[in-house]
Design a protein around this nucleic acid. Structure first.
Lengths: 149, 149
DNA sequence: GCAGAAGACGAGATCGAATCTCATAAACAT
DNA sequence: ATGTTTATGAGATTCGATCTCGTCTTCTGC
């Protein structure tokens, strides 16, 4: 097949997790997993549908939402909402690949960032909180260089 | 009037900011400001409409969304999206009152929290980021004590 | 292999939060 | 007061997300 991704085999892990959870194989799921594995940042359902329709295999909206729900349920995908009223999805990765988001509220530009200090603070916090923590999400809003001028 | 709030005069500050930005006074705005000032945590448009309809002065959906947009534009209100696909709004406060959110993904329970370490990390980060930062938002997802059992 | 059962998928209907339109009511300046 | 501008509300509209249900595919047992 294609060499697909530089970053480990997230898609393979996810596929395995699906199997273990009792799901069968399917073309839509496979296409979606491969696409998500290639992304550096979060995609909306619409973006996913377009990307898959262009190259690869077309997938219906219904399948996208359904598969995303399954992937989120088994913990390999995270929904993120970055302030434009639409839901985005991205692969959950540990270590490298794990990131958060900078959003330009004027042009909508989206950029990932990482920060060790922040992760440390969150990790410490996670133990003190009245919640069995699954994932966290940090969004920094502002004006990007172009828009701030 | 009512003693309204323990925490400074957020509503008054916001009203002043509106005036300075060239807006006139209006019943809907006033009611919304007072309601937001009393809240410990974020409210959805629907929750705002219900709360205002119950006591106080009924306000239309159109006005709620319009006023929220204005308040966000002048920086006194922040939109937050906590993962249920609906937008919530809350007063932007500095120091006490400033908080982030714990969300139970099973029952939807929403709880505010604060953490000095986190704020320090974010503040340091803000200087290094290619963005003129306005606000930040941290959401921790998990299962609350009741749901996790 | 092959047939049957169970699950995966897609097309289109449906839902509902958010937005838009436009007529009317309030606020402000003079 | 009076005219002008802005604020507000009722209802239509948009569009992302969800649901329905018939068809296609995968898997299991023979």
């Amino acid at each position: 097949m294609t060499p697909t991704t530089q970053r480990s085999g997230w898609a393979e892990q996810a596929a395995r997790a699906l199997t273990e959870a009792g799901y069968r194989r399917g073309g839509a799921r496979r296409a979606i997993l491969e696409l998500l594995d290639e992304q550096a940042c979060a995609l909306s359902a619409q973006e996913i549908q377009r990307a898959l329709g262009g190259r690869r295999r077309a997938v219906s909206r219904a399948s996208i939402y359904r598969v995303m729900e399954e992937l989120e349920a088994i913990g390999v995908v995270q929904r993120v909402e970055l302030g434009q009223g639409i839901v985005r999805y991205e692969a959950v990765r540990r270590g490298p690949g794990h990131h958060h988001h900078l959003v330009c509220d004027r042009c909508g530009r989206l950029e990932p960032f990482t920060d060790a200090g922040l992760e440390r603070a969150i990790s410490r916090l996670s133990d003190r909180v009245p919640l069995k923590v699954s994932v966290h999400e940090i969004v920094i809003h502002g004006a990007c260089r172009v828009c701030a001028r």
